[in-house]
Computed example of a mutant assay.
Amino acid sequence: MDLSAARRPSAGTLSRRSALAGLAGILGISATACSSGTAGGSTSGSEGAAGFPLELANCEATLTFDAPPQRIVLLESAPVTTLDGIGVLDRVVARAGVFPPGYYDEELDARVEEIPTLSDDIDASGHLQISQEMVIAQTPDIVFGLPDGVTREAMADAGAQVVVQDIYCGTDDERASFETLYSTIATYGRIFDHAQEAEDLTAALTDRVTAVSESAEALRTTTAAVLYPSLGGGPLYTYGAGSMVTAQLDALGIENVFADTAERVFEISSEPLLAADPDVLIVLYQGEGDGSDVTAEMTTQDQLTGLRAVQDEAVLPLLFNFAEPASPLVVEGLERIHEWLLEIEG
């Protein structure tokens, strides 16, 4: 997810309205069909598609789809590769926020750039600035993301269902795994009546995860921490068991030194990080560039130069959506982390 879906966490679990700027989570995966049919092959969104009307539990809400949605508005970047992977990205009529080209290959980036932009106005804390009237004017029937100023109720009155990443709901009781991603893809497949495309995408991603996991058995790195530094001297955050970064490290056979915390993301001081002293650091960042400026600022402002990873230059800047939330980009992120570890281990 990009800066447009930003929320800031409290000291406890995340709530939907107070999650960290730039942090995202997973789509709700509990869905039941109101009719007796089940979602089958693609029907191009025609009325009477099998499995519709469809009810979908998403955070505190129950979404209802009378037919597969045809007009998508993106208020976050995270869904792009899933929508593309199941063949419905051409239904996106507008987008808002930041969609870094570093996430996509040249062809996909060109298609994303062709989507009309409603707003790329991001405040200093990473929040998308947009009015819900601007969103409603696009006559969507589905909206991904719920920035401040946009409500489910207003969107529903205008005929649009809002899909929020489940991570915003404060569900911190389960350890994330790649099954989280596969369930998300399956849910997208149900929403758009592209179940077969969702299965094919999951199969391809599963093969890639398996290949990395098998190759990673030879890695010598044993511990890691994944950090999200706030710019301008703000708090430092790290990731616990509920984050997809833990799923990535598990696949690599590496211990997330903060995975004993159930929360997905939480504020951390330098002391416990220095005490854990992980072999490597992965630093998540947003926007343009290679992230080296972000890591340099972080290690300076948080007095982390004493960490072995910093001294050994074992610090990887990684664009946020390559680690969070659950999308095909986290598989590419897994591959990138693996390649980087092979390089630094020589």
Results as ranks from 00 to 15, higher is better:
16 R>A: 14
17 R>G: 15
17 R>D: 15
18 S>H: 14
18 S>D: 15
18 S>I: 10
19 A>L: 03
20 L>W: 05
23 L>Y: 06
24 A>H: 09
24 A>R: 03
25 G>C: 08
25 G>W: 01
25 G>L: 03
26 I>Y: 14
26 I>W: 12
27 L>R: 14
27 L>M: 15
27 L>V: 15
28 G>W: 00
29 I>V: 13
29 I>G: 00
29 I>W: 05
29 I>M: 07
30 S>I: 07
31 A>D: 06
32 T>W: 03
32 T>L: 06
33 A>N: 14
33 A>W: 09
34 C>F: 15
34 C>S: 15
35 S>R: 10
36 S>E: 12
37 G>P: 09
38 T>H: 09
38 T>Q: 14
39 A>F: 08
39 A>M: 13
40 G>R: 11
40 G>M: 11
40 G>S: 07
40 G>P: 03
43 T>G: 01
43 T>V: 13
43 T>I: 04
44 S>L: 13
44 S>K: 14
45 G>A: 07
47 E>V: 08
47 E>A: 10
48 G>C: 02
50 A>K: 09
51 G>C: 03
52 F>G: 09
53 P>S: 08
55 E>Q: 12
55 E>D: 08
55 E>P: 02
56 L>T: 07
57 A>V: 08
58 N>T: 09
59 C>A: 06
59 C>Q: 02
60 E>C: 00
61 A>V: 04
62 T>S: 14
63 L>D: 02
64 T>D: 13
64 T>A: 14
65 F>D: 02
66 D>W: 08
66 D>N: 15
67 A>C: 05
67 A>I: 03
67 A>M: 10
68 P>M: 03
68 P>G: 04
71 R>P: 10
72 I>M: 12
74 L>D: 03
75 L>C: 11
75 L>H: 05
75 L>I: 10
75 L>K: 07
78 A>Y: 01
79 P>G: 00
80 V>H: 00
81 T>Y: 02
82 T>Q: 05
83 L>D: 01
83 L>P: 01
84 D>C: 02
84 D>M: 02
85 G>S: 06
85 G>Q: 04
85 G>L: 05
86 I>R: 02
88 V>L: 00
89 L>P: 04
91 R>T: 06
91 R>I: 07
92 V>S: 03
93 V>D: 07
95 R>W: 01
95 R>F: 00
96 A>L: 06
96 A>G: 09
97 G>S: 10
97 G>A: 09
98 V>L: 08
99 F>H: 05
102 G>H: 12
102 G>C: 04
103 Y>L: 04
103 Y>G: 00
104 Y>Q: 06
105 D>W: 06
106 E>Y: 10
106 E>F: 07
107 E>Q: 14
107 E>K: 15
108 L>N: 03
108 L>V: 05
108 L>W: 03
109 D>G: 01
111 R>N: 12
111 R>D: 12
111 R>C: 08
113 E>D: 15
114 E>R: 11
115 I>W: 01
115 I>N: 00
116 P>T: 12
116 P>K: 11
